[in-house]
Amino acid sequence: MKKIVLAGLVAFVAFSFKAVDVEKKEVKANESKIVWKGYKVTGSHEGNIILKSGSLSFNEDKLIGGEFVMDMTSLNVTDLEGEYKGKLEGHLKSDDFFGIENYPTASLVFTDVKATGKNSYSVTGDLTIKGKTNPITFSISIYGNKATASLKVDRTKYDVKYGSASFFDGLKDKAIYDEFDLVTDLQF
């Protein structure tokens, strides 16, 4: 009798949980765009980073996950030309900033996704830059096969402290703000 009751209980529990159908959609890296924008006391600079790979996971039409890898060696500057463009790109790729020789990629893995509207979500994820991982929360909107998101990143959490008034005194107008923006337009 105990075996029948136990078997019935196991069957009830097993059928009580609906299997989650996860559809993983690969992001078309060559059709997607990541723009960075950094700020300093005297202005700002911006450029692009190429998406190496990425995917978004859905249950039916609801976003439930995602993961991305950015090619930090592709980091470029789009608001300067010539010598100044080359100098800034070289400095951003150096150990003062992103140290691309040792850290050629950065990654983002979604850890929690909450719907905030019909096509919008609040996402918390683990962002890894220069081998350091920290949680980050941002909004993402999805329309058809496109997704857009804007992330505000505190670079000092990833050991990118060059020119930060939070760590160095007397920088005056040479200070670079701790936060930079990543704006993404993804196609999948």
Rank of each mutant, 00 (worst) to 15 (best):
I4C: 05
I4A: 09
V5P: 00
G8F: 09
G8S: 12
V10D: 07
V10H: 04
A11N: 10
A11E: 10
F12P: 01
F12D: 07
S16L: 08
S16G: 15
S16A: 13
F17W: 07
F17D: 02
K18R: 12
E23Q: 13
K24F: 08
K24W: 06
K24N: 05
K25V: 11
K25A: 03
V27N: 01
K28F: 06
K33M: 08
I34P: 01
G38W: 09
G38Y: 12
G43L: 13
S44W: 11
S44L: 13
S44V: 09
G47I: 13
G47V: 14
N48T: 10
I49N: 01
L51N: 01
L51D: 01
S53H: 03
G54H: 03
S55L: 06
S57Q: 07
N59K: 04
N59M: 07
E60F: 09
E60W: 06
L63G: 09
I64W: 04
G65F: 09
G66W: 01
E67Q: 14
F68T: 05
D71F: 04
T73E: 05
S74V: 04
S74N: 02
L75C: 09
V77W: 14
V77D: 08
V77F: 14
D79N: 09
D79P: 04
L80K: 12
E81F: 13
Y84K: 15
K85P: 04
G86D: 15
K87N: 15
E89Q: 14
E89I: 15
E89C: 14
L92N: 08
L92F: 15
F97H: 09
F97L: 10
F97E: 07
F97A: 09
F98Q: 07
Y103G: 02
P104L: 09
T105A: 05
A106Q: 03
S107Y: 05
S107P: 00
S107V: 02
T111E: 14
D112F: 08
V113W: 08
T116N: 01
G117P: 00
K118A: 12
N119S: 05
S122N: 12
V123Q: 02
G125K: 00
D126V: 02
D126R: 00
I129N: 03
I129V: 12
T133G: 00
T133S: 02
P135I: 07
I136L: 14
I140H: 03
S141T: 15
I142W: 02
I142F: 05
I142R: 00
I142L: 04
Y143I: 14
N145P: 00
K146L: 08
K146W: 05
A147H: 03
A147G: 06
T148I: 11
T148F: 13
A149D: 11
S150A: 15
L151V: 13
K152F: 08
V153M: 08
V153R: 02
D154Y: 11
D154Q: 11
R155M: 11
R155G: 02
T156P: 01
T156F: 12
K157H: 08
Y158Q: 01
Y158N: 04
V160D: 03
V160H: 05
K161A: 10
Y162I: 09
Y162S: 01
A165R: 00
F168K: 00
F168C: 04
G170R: 01
L171T: 11
L171C: 06
D173N: 15
D173A: 06
K174S: 14
A175N: 06
Y177N: 10
L182E: 05
L182T: 08
T184M: 14
T184H: 05
L186T: 02
F188T: 06
